[in-house]
Computed example of a mutant assay.
Amino acid sequence: MTTFILVHGAWHGGWCFDRVTALLRDAGHDVLAPDLPGMGGSEEELARVTLQGWADFVADLCRAASSQPVVLAGHSRGGIVISQAAEAAPEAVGALVYICAMMLPDGMSRASFRASEPANAAYDGFVSPTAGGHGSLITGEDPEKLFAQRSPPDAAAAAMSRLVAEPEGPRLTALSLSPGRWGSIPRTYVECTDDRVIPLASQRRMQALCPGTRRLTLAADHSPFLSRPHELAACLIASTPETRSAAPA
């Protein structure tokens, strides 16, 4: 039995993993899929959110898990959270899994990586600042065409209706990672070939920036928990330390 801790991406909540959580539990594993503190909060609450605060929150969950070390997985923006959490508590993390996620090296922020990438006009057209500027919102019609175009339409529309305000601070914060802590933990990157939010070329660039990461590939959109839940659950199970050590070279 493994404990999986699943960290959601921007604008989402732990609910996005519901189908994958059920599949992992049916396979005999423990699963936590928390909502990160401050999501959807007031301007004051959004302003108080920090990347380190989120990392400490997740690190504490890892330390308290019933079976250790855990498999810590992050989707999209959740990648920067699991990296910083693993740096804080490497002894409690047996494996890291980045699900079409921001896997960045030491000293880089989500914002600086994005600034170095080609413009993504489709993505930019759906993102608007909150009234006070301490967060962002997904606006516009049919965001599922960006986030979940390969997912079942009803599930995609329901998910888009649950998106909330995202704090701005974490994406502006540079990661502080070290080879002996974050760098010592086995990493798997689950790339999604039809992702319109973080295109495949960007996912591959991040893998090149963090050498030594194992790659798994899904024919999925940016919401593989909706479009490929069984396959995503299989990728997570394949990333456990026991499964990796048993796999043929």
Rank of each mutant, 00 (worst) to 15 (best):
1 M>G: 10
6 L>M: 09
9 G>Y: 07
9 G>D: 04
10 A>P: 03
12 H>R: 03
14 G>C: 11
14 G>P: 10
20 V>N: 05
21 T>V: 14
23 L>G: 06
23 L>D: 02
24 L>D: 02
29 H>G: 07
30 D>R: 15
36 L>K: 05
37 P>Y: 12
38 G>I: 08
40 G>R: 08
42 S>K: 07
46 L>I: 11
47 A>L: 08
49 V>L: 13
49 V>Q: 08
52 Q>D: 15
53 G>I: 03
54 W>E: 08
54 W>A: 02
54 W>K: 04
57 F>L: 04
59 A>I: 09
60 D>V: 07
65 A>S: 09
65 A>Q: 06
68 Q>K: 15
68 Q>T: 15
69 P>L: 06
71 V>C: 03
71 V>Y: 05
75 H>N: 10
76 S>I: 09
79 G>W: 01
95 A>D: 05
97 V>Q: 02
100 C>W: 00
100 C>I: 01
102 M>G: 01
106 D>S: 12
107 G>I: 07
114 R>T: 15
114 R>Q: 09
119 A>Y: 01
119 A>W: 02
121 A>W: 07
129 P>I: 06
130 T>H: 13
141 E>T: 14
144 E>M: 04
149 Q>I: 03
149 Q>E: 14
150 R>G: 04
151 S>D: 10
153 P>V: 12
168 E>R: 15
169 G>P: 01
178 S>G: 14
185 I>G: 11
195 D>C: 07
196 R>N: 13
202 S>G: 13
203 Q>R: 10
204 R>C: 00
206 M>Q: 12
209 L>V: 10
212 G>H: 09
212 G>L: 10
217 T>D: 00
228 R>E: 15
232 L>N: 01
235 C>E: 00
241 P>S: 08
